[in-house]
Design a binder for these strands. Structure first.
Length: 141
DNA sequence: GCCAACGTTGGC
DNA sequence: GCCAACGTTGGC
């Protein structure tokens, strides 16, 4: 099983929106970046888990966990068919408290030095997370 | 609102 | 294929 981190601006789609969706499942649509697209299309497999990250908001950080329930298929919200892809994700659980970016940064120079989302200038909305980092982040909950 | 970072576009 | 210009992201 692989682990990921998915970014979303809660103003457009938050973990609460996912919690309120039918079967707590939604297509992760709107990704318009080739690198991220490739991961959605080729690498994310059914059963993989991902952190749901809230960006560009009052309290940036990880809000909970989702799992991939349907593998890559074309993004219906895209103008160009077949060019952009989505996966379906289902809510596993919402954290009681957001694991804040600020809290993650405390460990940036040691335990979480490989966590892509902490890297300077990082803008990728889909990034892989190692099992080691996954477990460490969960220990911060 | 600012601005650094970076992906994409398009002229050459 | 280079690279400047431009648009977007996202933390602060």
């Amino acid at each position: 099983m692989n682990y990921w981190l998915l970014k979303s601006e809660p103003d457009s789609f938050s973990i609460d929106d996912l919690a309120a969706a039918t079967r707590q499942t939604a297509a992760w649509d709107g990704v318009r970046n080739f690198q991220a697209r490739n991961m959605l299309r080729d690498s994310m497999k059914k059963g993989d888990q991902a952190f749901f990250y809230h960006s560009s908001c009052e309290l940036p950080g990880i809000a909970g966990i989702v799992s991939v329930v349907k593998e890559g298929y074309p993004d219906k919200t895209a103008d160009e068919e077949q060019r952009w892809f989505v996966v379906d994700v289902k809510l596993v659980r919402k954290f009681k408290h957001i694991i804040a970016l600020e809290q993650l940064r405390v460990h940036q120079s040691k335990a979480l030095r490989d966590l892509v989302v902490l890297r300077r200038g990082n803008r990728l909305s889909v990034t892989p997370v190692t099992k080691k980092d996954w477990l460490f982040v969960l220990s911060l909950e």
